[in-house]
Design a protein around this nucleic acid. Structure first.
Lengths: 225, 225
DNA sequence: TGTCCTATGGTTAGTGC
DNA sequence: CGCACTAACCATAGGAC
């Protein structure tokens, strides 16, 4: 009957159709995965559903498999861009990337300045905040943390990629470990890795209990860029 | 013709089938999303493909939409468990969560100890690493960073959730902002937020240039748990 | 690789219970 | 709400190009 490809107006019909088509879609995903030996992940969020039920269905149901494919996707996303640009020159590429990151930081900072949050921590009117303001502050804080989280992920993957490029380039240039790369020798790099809070010695020597107390990845990235 | 639901042995037939069924699956995902106004995300990884092409296809193609739904999924995953446990007591819930996090940390640390990395940073044999060893080290580092990244995301979202719970609980108990919550008053919380490297005053007062140099979220989380 | 074609079988909107 | 049914529609394996 070739129903038009737009939102089904009748709510009941829509829910029935959703249920049926969701099953079929999951079945098809399973078939594709089985027949062709590929990893498939399906995430369906039904925001109209009552919030008591879990509004997000996935295939596969196993969260580990979902997480695994999401990681694959993210890794592919961060590593595919350089190849598309024919990888002209490593320094040019890094410069470009640094510019991009700096612009993003600038943009983010400006958008932060525009949004007026509740002023806290300057020591004068902290005690005047009431419960409602506290909640508002919590919400604000939550948003900021999410933004920072995204930012950190980006910086971390950016840093990982750059470090790997540096070291691979280093290997290509010379088999001797003493050859300088971009003005840094191996000692510089290891110093960098061990600088400040980034304690790799404890980490690799098996004493991992203080692992998460000392890590300040942001500082590393700031040194790198 | 009811082909059996198992891997298609013929490679060419498999690729053809994969291509056809992938299109159909994407079409179905699009139809479901349009007809029923739900967010759908499809990730397909074809590992058999040659690595030159991007082996991961998604629907929608827009990475922002993919990222958005992935975030929705992660949020739902972290917040769905308490509701299933009827949210008995907040402190019990937090204790349980703390135990869980600690166990995960322990597990992670143990798995770290088992995998033998190249020993760096102890100052004795750094200079003896050659180019190959450097690359190996870079690869190791990359893996560790990925794990740390995952870990940090988890701790951050965990922290966000707990803080929000605390503040909402605080509002429920009393409209006065001076009521203590779990032995902490409002001043404690703001002190906590402003402690160490977490400089919210600069952040909120618009001087955001040093924003990313000072943040040490891990310390915050360690204080909270 | 992609497209077209076709017979076959699977999917689905609508209906009834 | 879920299940069963059915006619119409669609997906798809296989083949050809």
């Amino acid at each position: 009957m070739t129903l038009p490809l737009k939102l089904i107006p009748n709510e009941k019909a829509r829910r029935v159709t959703f249920s049926k088509r969701k099953s079929s879609l999951i079945k098809k995903a399973y078939e594709l995965s089985t027949l062709c030996d590929v990893k498939v992940c399906l995430i369906i969020k039904d925001s109209t559903n009552q919030p008591s039920n879990n509004p997000i269905a996935t295939w596969p149901k196993d969260p580990h498999k979902v997480r695994s494919l999401i990681n694959d996707y993210k890794i592919a996303k961060t590593t595919q861009k350089p190849s598309s640009k024919s990888l002209q020159n490593l320094t040019d590429f890094l410069k470009e990337r640094i510019n991009k990151v700096n612009k993003e930081i600038e943009k983010l900072c400006q958008s932060q300045e525009k949004s007026k949050g509740i002023v806290v921590g300057n020591g004068s009117n902290q005690e005047k905040l009431n419960g409602n303001q506290l909640c508002k502050f919590a919400s604000e804080l939550d948003n900021k943390m999410k933004q920072l989280n995204l930012r950190m992920r980006h910086l971390i993957s950016s840093h990982n990629f750059k470090l790997q490029m540096l070291l691979q380039q280093h290997q290509m240039i010379s088999s001797s470990s003493k050859a300088p790369l971009f003005g840094m020798n191996y000692h510089n790099i290891t110093s960098l890795l061990n600088s400040n809070d980034y304690v790799f010695d404890k980490y690799y020597n098996g004493n991992g209990t203080n692992l998460f107390k000392k890590i300040n990845v942001i500082n590393m990235v700031n040194i790198m860029i």
